[in-house]
Simulated scan of single mutants.
Amino acid sequence: MRKEEKSEVIKSLADQLGTYTHFYLTDISGMNAEQTAALRKSCFEKEVKLIVVKNTLLGKALEQTGKAQDELVAVLEGSTSIMFSNTGNAPAKLIKAFRKDKGAEKPMLKAAYVDECVYVGEGSLEQLVNIKSREELIGDVIALLQSPAKNVISALQGSAGGKIAGLVKTLENRAQ
């Protein structure tokens, strides 16, 4: 690969590292063509972009974007592929489901960069699966905000509601 080609690849990787808010470094070496095709299809369906990269080029792209933390650079050995995603836990869920469905050991998690935090090693996979996405957090907040209102409405509609309505009416009559 010529120097110009390498600089184009580094620039492209740096652009993608800037575009996507989360990325996972994985090892998919040793997977056969059928497994690799199935993984790529799963990635496409879950809106996860999968790219196989050279470690040195990825290291230089990480330096350009300011994401070259020691933990990430340390795992750049052997075969490396990147899973880009705008949802923090999507690649982790994909990896876990893919392994379960295919009975495979790969893809192996080397490291992940999620919400400006670095997770290193296979032991982090379960923790990454349990991270809630932005949409899930918003749903939780909305559910918490709706809960008190639902309780009041159900109390008014239930058998106690007649008593409460009667008390309100009595208080209204006394005020006049």
Rank of each mutant, 00 (worst) to 15 (best):
S7W: 02
K102Q: 15
K169N: 06
E135N: 12
P91H: 05
S159A: 10
I10T: 09
L58Q: 05
A14Y: 06
V73M: 14
R174M: 09
L25D: 00
A112P: 02
N130A: 13
E126V: 06
E71L: 11
A61I: 01
A90D: 08
G139R: 14
K100W: 11
N151G: 05
D27W: 01
A149W: 06
K106N: 06
T65D: 03
G161H: 00
I131P: 08
V52Q: 09
S124Q: 15
A149K: 13
C117G: 08
R40G: 00
T19S: 12
I164K: 00
M1E: 07
K6Q: 10
E172I: 05
L39Y: 01
R40F: 00
A149S: 13
R134T: 07
Q127L: 10
G161L: 00
S124H: 09
P107D: 12
E172H: 14
Q35C: 02
G158I: 04
V114F: 04
L144F: 13
K102S: 14
S81C: 05
L76C: 01
A143C: 01
R99A: 09
Q146H: 08
K169Q: 12
R2A: 11
P91G: 05
L39R: 01
K60V: 02
F23G: 08
L137S: 01
A92F: 10
C117V: 11
K67R: 14
E116A: 13
K96E: 15
E136K: 11
L171N: 02
T87V: 15
I131Y: 15
G123L: 09
